[in-house]
C-alpha cells in the first residue's frame, strides 16, 4: 500500500548576471585583409569591454571562423572574397551596466550581436527554497489523497528530484 505524488516548487527572483554574445563579421576580397581587419576591430571591442568594467576572466571566445565566399552565378563559381567571424561571450556582473557595455562594444566596432541572456550567479539558496516548496507541495497532495481514500500517510518510501 503506497501513494506516489509529484510536487513542484517555483522561486522567482531577479537575475544578477547578464551575458552578451557579440563580435565582428568582416568581409573582404583578400583573406589577409579580412583577417587583420577582424583582429584589429575585435581588439578594439575587447578593450571597450574591459574599459566598461568586464573582467578578463569574464570574457570568453565563443567562435572564430573563416568562410570562402563564391559567386554561384558564375559557371566556375569563383572565389569573390572571405568572411571572417570572431565572437566572444562577456559576463556582466553589474546588470545596470548591460546596455552601456553593449553600446560601448558596438561603438568600438562590434557588428554582430547574437544574444543577451540572464542568470543567477549563486542559485543555491533559491534551489533550497524551491526544494522546500516542492516537498511541502508533494506532502499536501499525498495527505489529500490519503484523506480522500480513508487512509493515513506513513513514512516516505522513495523520493527523487528534478531541477530546471
Amino acid at each position: 500500500r503506497s501513494v506516489t505524488v509529484n510536487g513542484e516548487g517555483r522561486v522567482s527572483l531577479p537575475p544578477d548576471t547578464a551575458y552578451i554574445a557579440l563580435g565582428v563579421d568582416i568581409r573582404d576580397p583578400d583573406l589577409g585583409v579580412a583577417q587583420r581587419t577582424a583582429a584589429e576591430q575585435m581588439d578594439a571591442v575587447l578593450a571597450a569591454l574591459r574599459a566598461a568594467g568586464v573582467a578578463e576572466k569574464d570574457i570568453q571566445t565563443g567562435a572564430y571562423s573563416i568562410y570562402v565566399e563564391r559567386d554561384y552565378n558564375q559557371p566556375n563559381q569563383p572565389i569573390i572574397g572571405y568572411h571572417v567571424s570572431h565572437s566572444v561571450t562577456a559576463k556582466i556582473r553589474d546588470l545596470n551596466a548591460t546596455g552601456s557595455t553593449l553600446a560601448a562594444a558596438i561603438d568600438a566596432g562590434a557588428n554582430n550581436v547574437s544574444g543577451v541572456w540572464f542568470g543567477l550567479e549563486n542559485p543555491g539558496d533559491a534551489i533550497a527554497q524551491a526544494r522546500e516548496l516542492a516537498v511541502a507541495d508533494a506532502r499536501a497532495k499525498a495527505e489529500d489523497l490519503a484523506r480522500l481514500s480513508d487512509s493515513t500517510l506513513g513514512p516516505v518510501l522513495t523520493i527523487s528530484e528534478g531541477y530546471s
Binding site: P14, G99, L102, F118
Partner: peptide, 21 residues
C-alpha cells in the same frame, strides 16, 4: 539599448512515494 533583466525562475520537482496506512 535598454536591457530588461525580467525575472529568473528556479523550478524544482520532487516525486515522493509514501506508505499508506
Amino acid at each position: 539599448p535598454t536591457i530588461n533583466p525580467g525575472s529568473a525562475e528556479v523550478v524544482l520537482t520532487v516525486t515522493v512515494k509514501y506508505t499508506l496506512n
